[in-house]
Computed example of a mutant assay.
Amino acid sequence: MSDTSATREGAEEQGWATARTLAEALPFIQQYDRETVVIKYGGHAMGQEESARLFAADSVLLKLLGLHPVVVHGGGPQISRMLDKAGVKSTFVDGLRVTDEATMEVAEMVLSGAINKEIANWITLAGAEADVRGVGLSGKDARLITVEKATRTRKDPDSQIEQVVDLGFVGEPTRIDPQLIQGLISADHDYIPVIAPIGVSEDGQTYNINADTVAGALAGALSAKRMLLLTDVAGVLGADGELIRQMSVDEARGAIASGVASGGMIPKLETAIAAVEAGVEAVVILDGRRPHAMLVELFTEHGSGTLITR
Score class of each variant (00 low, 15 high):
residue 222 L to N: 02
residue 266 I to S: 01
residue 12 E to H: 02
residue 103 T to H: 13
residue 97 R to H: 03
residue 75 G to Y: 00
residue 10 G to H: 10
residue 247 M to F: 14
residue 252 A to K: 04
residue 72 V to E: 03
residue 228 L to C: 01
residue 177 D to Y: 00
residue 284 V to R: 05
residue 194 V to D: 12
residue 95 G to Q: 02
residue 11 A to F: 06
residue 231 T to H: 01
residue 38 V to Q: 06
residue 190 D to W: 11
residue 147 V to C: 03
residue 57 A to W: 10
residue 201 S to P: 04
residue 80 S to N: 13
residue 161 I to C: 09
residue 251 E to G: 07
residue 129 E to A: 12
residue 29 I to A: 14
residue 40 K to P: 08
residue 90 S to K: 08
residue 284 V to Q: 09
residue 235 G to Q: 09
residue 10 G to M: 11
residue 146 T to A: 02
residue 83 L to Y: 05
residue 217 A to L: 01
residue 70 V to K: 05
residue 139 G to D: 11
residue 242 E to W: 12
residue 61 L to E: 07
residue 247 M to H: 13
residue 79 I to A: 04
residue 226 R to L: 06
residue 26 L to S: 15
residue 279 G to S: 11
residue 145 I to C: 03
residue 175 R to V: 12
residue 57 A to K: 01
residue 88 V to C: 09
residue 239 A to R: 07
residue 263 G to D: 07
residue 141 D to S: 07
residue 138 S to N: 12
residue 227 M to L: 13
residue 284 V to H: 13
residue 79 I to L: 10
residue 30 Q to G: 11
residue 89 K to D: 13
residue 1 M to N: 14
residue 201 S to Y: 02
residue 269 L to K: 01
residue 62 L to T: 06
residue 96 L to I: 15
residue 129 E to S: 12
residue 74 G to F: 00
residue 220 G to W: 06
residue 211 A to N: 13
residue 69 P to K: 03
residue 159 S to K: 15
residue 94 D to Y: 10
residue 213 T to P: 03
residue 172 E to D: 15
residue 84 D to N: 15
residue 105 E to L: 04
residue 104 M to T: 03
residue 153 T to Q: 14
residue 262 S to P: 07
residue 228 L to V: 04
residue 99 T to A: 07
residue 222 L to T: 05
residue 15 G to K: 13
residue 306 T to F: 07
residue 48 Q to F: 05
residue 217 A to R: 04
residue 171 G to Q: 05
residue 258 S to A: 03
residue 37 V to I: 03
residue 56 A to E: 08
residue 64 L to I: 09
residue 310 R to D: 11
residue 120 A to R: 05
residue 53 R to S: 11
residue 68 H to D: 02
